[in-house]
């Protein structure tokens, strides 16, 4: 243990969950540094994480664009066919007083996840290239982090699975290309979150700002 007065303030971090004060120290690559009081992972650096997270964010953004425009699901019953894109699902509530819900659903499953990826690309692009951080990069990363709980692509996918079970008895279901793109983007997005060490990115942003 060290007395606080001896430690420079920029080398201290406090757990965001419980406020316990620690001396920041990077664990070995691939390891995790946890809060001593509540166990929250505070630092978890990975080798080449910047470039990988950037690549994954670009992948997710491109897949998201594709997934919105290609046909997502189709059903056929008694010769009648109907196709639906991800956008159609969001717009399902657009009739009458439910418009607000349509906008919210579109935001939760398409716009927020996409915006998060674009912000991450904006923040990580220059850092991964070894250049100075982009203007307002701190704001962009903070916003991307704040949007995290509102990005619900993976929850939408479970919803799709449930809906398919409900429809299965009613009609024949065809999975469109957008469906597979959406599955892929959810997998990449989850992997990306596991790879991203927020502390390391904040450190990199702070270093580049000086």
């Amino acid at each position: 243990m060290t007395a606080i007065a001896e430690v420079p303030i920029e080398t201290l971090i406090a757990c965001h969950q419980c406020d316990a004060l620690h001396r920041a120290a990077e664990p070995p690559t691939g390891g995790k540094a946890r809060c001593r009081r509540c166990g929250t992972v505070l630092i978890a650096p990975r080798r080449g994480a910047l470039v990988r997270v950037l690549a994954m964010a670009i992948t997710v953004a491109v897949l998201m664009l594709g997934a919105t425009f290609f046909p997502f699901l189709g059903i056929t019953a008694a010769g009648v066919t109907n196709e639906s894109s991800v956008f159609d699902a969001a717009l399902a509530f657009s009739a009458g007083p439910m418009v607000g819900l349509s906008i919210a659903v579109a935001a939760l499953i398409v716009f927020v996840p996409l915006l998060r990826m674009l912000l991450l690309i904006y923040v990580l692009g220059p850092l991964a290239a070894g250049r100075a951080a982009a203007p307002q990069a701190a704001w962009a990363f903070r916003t991307a982090e704040a949007l995290r709980p509102w990005s619900m692509a993976e929850i939408f996918l479970i919803g799709v699975a449930v809906a398919l079970v409900k429809v299965a008895g009613l009609a024949t279901v065809v999975l469109g290309p957008a469906f597979w793109m959406f599955v892929a983007l959810v997998i990449v997005a989850v992997l990306k979150d596991g790879y991203m060490c927020r502390w390391s990115i904040w450190q990199a942003l702070e270093r580049s700002a000086r």
Partner: peptide
Amino acid sequence: RWSMIDVFVVAILSALVQLGSLV
């Protein structure tokens, strides 16, 4: 956040199951 599932189920069903007078 996972409670949102049922809202998404309704959204997908409402968009997909539009087979005219059939259902």
